[in-house]
């Protein structure tokens, strides 16, 4: 359902996307369905790679979302395919965030591994 959010965000631009779409992605993270949560993570990765501003990607808010993703990945009883997708996307998110020494990220990666 949310797989088209990236088209909407690219169309309406960075500022509107951060204002209107980011809250939607956060809300999707709260969904009961693992499939929706997985798609939310995929969408977040696409957004930080090509839509959201560097300031937002580097901000504490983005870090909090990332940490939540990691926690959800640990909590959800996912099939191997979902888990593989998530790990791949989390890797890309880490690259986009470019915070190699951030203890919060390192701790979460440690837990996941």
């Amino acid at each position: 359902m949310c797989s088209h959010l990236i088209h909407v965000s690219r169309y309406i631009g960075q500022a509107s996307s951060e204002e209107k779409v980011l809250p939607e992605i956060k809300e999707l993270l709260e969904d009961e369905e693992g499939e929706v949560v997985t798609e939310a993570i995929v969408q977040f990765q696409k957004h930080i790679a090509s839509v959201f501003s560097d300031e937002l990607v580097q901000a504490q808010d983005a870090l909090d979302i990332f940490q939540k993703f990691c926690d959800l990945t640990l909590e959800h009883d996912m099939c191997m395919i979902d888990l593989a997708i998530l790990l791949k996307k989390l890797g890309k998110i880490i690259v986009s965030m470019n915070r190699p020494t951030e203890p919060g990220i390192l701790q979460r990666i440690g837990k996941l591994v």
């Binding site: 359902m1 959010l5 690219r10």
Partner: peptide, 11 residues
Amino acid sequence: ASLVGQLAKYD
């Protein structure tokens, strides 16, 4: 929802 996404994709 998909339709809204496509409307954006194709302007």
